[in-house]
């Protein structure tokens, strides 16, 4: 019999119901698109005439931002329910999330593709599948920076696919990212460092116990974290640039997170 470390089981237990998240976000985005649709209601039309302005149709990029924003809400919800995180004061919780929100967003995307298991298509958090043809079109329209980042993401997916990273390991990675011991000025610094060490130890124990034939699996997994961090940093820079040029829809958690790190 295999003994999965209790901590790893606890991490899996704290995972959100994917279908619930999917329903919540797809409903939200459907409403949003309805609101933004040029001919949605008579009231809207009247308003448009009055303001003499065409309602702006949500661009693909704008839609992606809303999707990322909604994903962030679900990430915060997840963190709130996490073992260890609950014990921290809100100030420390905020500092940890400010530090890692984009890494958790990128990991969320990557993990979804990984467990989706279809190399040719991309699965969105809404449950929609982007077909290879649509994906190619999107890449062509995206511009060099964005398409480069998406491709970098796909490479990371492939690497983790080769490793066959499982769901329990994915859950551990989320904790390693959340409890980053490099975050400074925490009220409870030693607690965060201690949790990080505990998660590290649990993941090591898990890989040795479940995959004893691959003794370097643990380090192989950890080696992907700097790549993830680099990609998320690039995504943040890109979002900042888009935000400054007024292309990111406003009043949301995404922008608040962008500001928090830059100020």
């Amino acid at each position: 019999g295999l003994t999965v470390p209790a901590l790893v089981l606890e991490f899996v237990r704290c995972e959100q119901d994917e279908l619930q998240v999917q329903n919540k976000i797809s409903t939200h985005l459907a409403h949003l698109q309805q609101e933004q649709s040029p001919r949605s209601t008579v009231a809207n039309q009247e308003q448009n005439v009055r303001h003499a302005a065409k309602p702006e149709r949500l661009t693909t990029f704008g839609l992606m931002c809303h999707m990322a924003d909604q994903t962030l809400f679900s990430i915060v919800e997840w963190a709130r329910g996490c073992i260890f995180f609950k014990e921290l004061k809100v100030g420390d919780q905020m500092k940890l999330l400010h530090n890692c929100w984009s890494e958790l967003l990128v990991l969320d995307y990557i993990a979804r593709q990984l467990h989706h298991g279809k190399a040719e298509s991309v699965l969105l958090i809404t449950g929609q599948e982007v077909t290879p043809v649509e994906f190619t079109t999107l890449l062509a329209q995206a511009g060099v920076t964005l398409s480069g980042m998406i491709q970098r993401g796909q490479e990371l997916v492939h690497r983790l696919q080769e490793l066959q990273l499982d769901r329990r390991e994915t859950a551990c990675l989320k904790y390693l990212i959340l409890f980053n011991p490099d975050v400074k000025l925490l009220e409870n610094q030693s607690y965060v460092e201690n949790v990080y060490e505990q998660v590290n130890a649990a993941l090591l124990e898990y890989t040795l116990c479940v995959y004893p034939q691959y003794p370097d699996r643990f380090s192989q997994i950890l080696m992907r974290l700097p790549e993830l961090r680099a990609l998320s940093a690039q995504s943040e820079d890109y979002l900042c640039y888009k935000h400054l040029s007024g292309e990111v829809p406003c009043n949301n958690l995404l922008i608040e997170m962008l500001h928090a790190k830059r100020t």
Partner: peptide, 17 residues
């Protein structure tokens, strides 16, 4: 700066029910 973090603080602080 504080105003910038209002939404996150609210989300972390709010009661579950």
């Amino acid at each position: 700066k504080k105003k910038d973090n209002a939404l996150l603080r609210y989300l972390l602080d709010k009661d579950d029910n």
